[in-house]
Design a protein around this nucleic acid. Structure first.
Lengths: 203, 203
DNA sequence: TAGATTGTTAATCGATTAACAATC
DNA sequence: TAGATTGTTAATCGATTAACAATC
């Protein structure tokens, strides 16, 4: 944008955090500025890109091409900006495999070989509840080190494997709970719960 | 499952949190158990349903019927289990409006009236970055109290409106960063960054 | 009764915020 | 120089964990 320098205050405001937070985080990664002049924008970007490995191409697979899996495969623009590439999708349903998406979709039978051949480390799991743990174990054995998990299951993984759980139902519930209760709920409501009301809640 | 009682240890194990956490949370909501006998499963469920307003039908709209919006509209099964109902979708693209989804899709022109008529309080926003704030302001003025936001924008809202930001790119980035760096990254790397390496990162 | 489990208080931990010396 | 901003240390805050008395 033509600017060369930026202050912790600016960055904090943009990111929605405090200026102190920015300075502390930068300090942690040895990103230094000038006592008066703030931070050099180009230098900061370079270092951040390095830290977040933006110089490397991140290959990611999607396992389970249901609604969420499909949406993510089309979400490519967002990911590619950050050099995160969805390189393939996998499913057990032959119908989904025949369909054409932004990414090639293969049968799960070939997943193990694909992961090993292409040295894939990151997977997005969007499979049904019932098969989630099984798929997860399979992925880990094939060499996956990080999983973004959309299934509402607490996956059991070795401690060197990272799982990031995303539960959209929970997230929606949090919004509803916080927004609706913020103006109708008070602590005493639970105290005063009569058995009739509880019974009502049950129906 | 035939069981009548449950202990804080059981619940914690299932939920992936400590038994103390369970007891503390239950205590906060005045959910009481027996010193020896643990918690009565039915009673706990009833109270939780009441607290989370599961007895009420939660009407939710989706704004922006792109990939994510569409996926969420099909995601109905997950939401309906919790009595969260996606009742309508909105978009400005006539093509999307004509298509048939699990939910009726209307033009945004009719959104204000729909929200007011049906007393909608919760919206899922999955619109492009560029129009996110505008749509948000519109929703708030129409009476929306809680927003699940998929756009990578820090929405400006009055303080009585709840926003839950979900950024799938960020979530994926977190997995990649944590998983890949956990075995290759060490603090000194940044210290020792030569200008050549940084230049390399830039390309 | 003895053992097990709750409910709550105290201790710990980590993360955020405040403060301020260093200095450009 | 004076003012502004960094970088770091200290203080605060909240959330998690530990501990344990109460008691079924």
């Amino acid at each position: 944008m033509g600017f060369k320098k930026v202050y912790s205050y600016n960055l904090g405001h943009e990111a929605g955090v405090s200026a102190e937070q920015i300075r502390k985080d930068f300090s942690h990664f040895k990103i230094t500025g000038n006592k008066k002049g703030g931070y050099e924008i180009d230098g900061v970007l370079d270092k951040l890109n390095f830290i977040f490995r933006k110089n490397e191409l991140q290959k990611v697979i999607i396992v389970g091409m249901g609604n969420i899996g499909r949406a993510l495969s089309h979400y490519e623009c967002g990911f590619t900006e950050r050099r995160q590439y969805i390189v393939a999708g996998f499913d057990i349903d032959p119908v989904k495999i025949r369909k054409t998406y932004n990414v090639p979709v293969y049968h799960m039978h070939s997943m193990d070989e694909y992961i090993r051949t292409n040295n894939i480390q990151i997977a997005i799991m969007a499979v049904p509840f019932i098969s989630a743990q099984e798929v997860c174990t399979f992925l880990v054995e094939a060499g996956i080190k990080g999983i973004m998990n959309f299934s509402p299951v607490l996956l059991q993984v070795p401690e060197d494997v990272i799982v990031n759980n995303i539960n959209l139902c929970d997230e929606l519930e949090i919004v509803i709970y916080t927004a609706v209760n913020s103006y109708t709920f008070n602590e005493n409501m639970i105290n005063n719960l009569t058995s009739q009301e509880i019974q009502g809640a049950r129906e």
